[in-house]
């Protein structure tokens, strides 16, 4: 059992009770700070370095073949706490050589950045690794409509990310060789 020791505060001396020496030393500190190097980041011209794993604006990415990865499973829409995501699912037509085996793709994909709270759940839940919160953090617009990112804008911001899975590529190879019945 540890015994609690009550530390008595040392009584203040007369000079301490007037506070004046303390005030003087405080003044000295602030004065010396006048001439120290400033730490301000001149924001629009200088940009901060973004740490890894930063959660910026959510974007849609394409796979290395430049194909749409999102299959509109709507899990992000489901998991989104502020209901910022709105997806209209759509078919991929059968005559689309590249992607017909994927079957489904979003017809429209909207993220309302006025609602988004940058929680990153959408990125976490995405089974196709199609949605990423990237480094862009400054977002502004003149109207509410402008801040609703549609599919086109989301892909424009997202770009292409390296992909280790090539899921649909494998699927296609399987189809072409091997186990087709």
């Amino acid at each position: 059992m540890i015994k609690t020791v009550v530390m008595e505060r040392k009584p203040l001396s007369l000079s301490e009770r007037t506070y004046l020496p303390q005030i003087a030393s405080g003044l000295k500190t602030t004065f010396s700070n006048l001439f120290k190097k400033k730490v301000t980041l001149q924001y629009p011209e200088q940009r901060p370095s973004i740490p890894r794993g930063y959660r910026g604006v959510p974007t849609l990415v394409k796979d290395p073949n430049g194909r749409e990865k999102c299959v509109s499973c709507q899990l992000c829409e489901f998991v989104c706490p502020p209901k910022a995501i709105r997806i209209t699912p759509g078919h991929i037509p059968e005559d689309d050589e590249e992607r017909s085996h994927v079957e489904k793709a979003p017809e429209e994909f909207e993220i309302d950045m006025l609602r988004c709270i940058y929680c990153g759940y959408c990125e976490e839940v995405c089974p196709e690794e199609a949605i990423f919160l990237q480094e862009n953090y400054s977002l502004s617009g003149y109207s509410r409509e402008e801040l609703v990112n549609d599919k086109e804008k989301l892909y424009e911001m997202g770009g292409t990310l390296p992909d280790k899975h090539f899921k649909w590529d494998k699927k296609k190879t399987d189809e072409e060789q091997g186990n087709a019945h």
């Binding site: 085996h101 079957e103 399987d174 189809e175 091997g178 186990n179 087709a180 019945h181």
Partner: peptide, 9 residues
Amino acid sequence: ERKNVKPKR
């Protein structure tokens, strides 16, 4: 192994 591929759609 690879999964079976059968007609879709």
